[in-house]
Design a protein around this nucleic acid. Sequence first.
DNA 1: GACATTTGACCAGT
DNA 2: ACTGGTCAAATGTC
Length: 317
Amino acid sequence: MDTGACVVSELAQGMELAMHLKSILNSESSSETINVLIQEIISSYDRALLMVNWGESGGQTPPPAPAMLSQPESSVSIDDSQDFNQAFNNQPDEKVLSKKRKAMSTWPQEQIRVSTDSGLEGITDDGYGWRKYGQKFILGAKFPRSYYRCTYRHVHNCMARKQVQRSDEDPTVLEITYKGQHTCNPAVKPSVVPPESPEKHEIKQNNHQNLLSNLKENLRVNTSDLDAPSSFSFPSASFETIENYQQFNSLSNFLQGSPSGSNYFTEWGNDFQHHDDSNLSGMISTTASTTNSPLAFPSDPQDLSANFPFDNSGFFI
DNA sequence: GACATTTGACCAGT
DNA sequence: ACTGGTCAAATGTC
């Protein structure tokens, strides 16, 4: 099956699952059933997105779905790579400092590219807290590389790290490399982090609603043209002055979900706007896969069920 | 005061 | 020796 057909199949399956979900949300189904359905919908779109990306990069069929949009604690089966788990389990003891860096190079690694041109600030937020611990100009690169580690490194001995670098070719693209796996669980964060204030909760809810309404208004998937993935359009918004490094750095920090930034934008961004020229793979591309993607889908069943934006012809309504 | 970022210095790998 | 990655003191923000 070619990429386009696979994408259509995945999207169709997602739509079917969404319909099913919508129907059972009106009945008295268990929350477990609902969660399973939601996870399957997410996985389905996840695979479709991967296919689009791989299709564009060479028209190949993607590797087995890594469920890049799924949370690690998902109850649905995820294609957990054995290599990944082995590498994860072999994370070095921090005491062995002399061999630490060498060992770290073998940690599971995932690189994604996120375009800041999309206005999808929240798309890089993976629900984890990150703390910047360094910045360095890399030889041959126009822009500095920023180093982040998990905020709960000491609390949960979480050794997850990530590096963020602006692309030389396209300054609006952030290349984010994740190293290691979180051993902290975002679900237990409230024991460490104070509960969200009502104001923040309201902001978050508004973002959900903005997301959905803007998706409905602006996002269209032309299923008849899926062999040309660029037709899968995501919107665009203007970026700040490129030459101003400080501005970029501030934006970068904002994107990384630092507590002073946008931890509250945990879903697919909050400011979709229509733009015909941007394309999905330019906005997001994955060059390696793990089960712990930074990309998050709305997890609230209400958000997913409300006016799920496909019609029968495969278009977003 | 607590916590985050910045940035020069230091360390380890090649 | 060079480079990338990390540390930690200084500084900023809430």
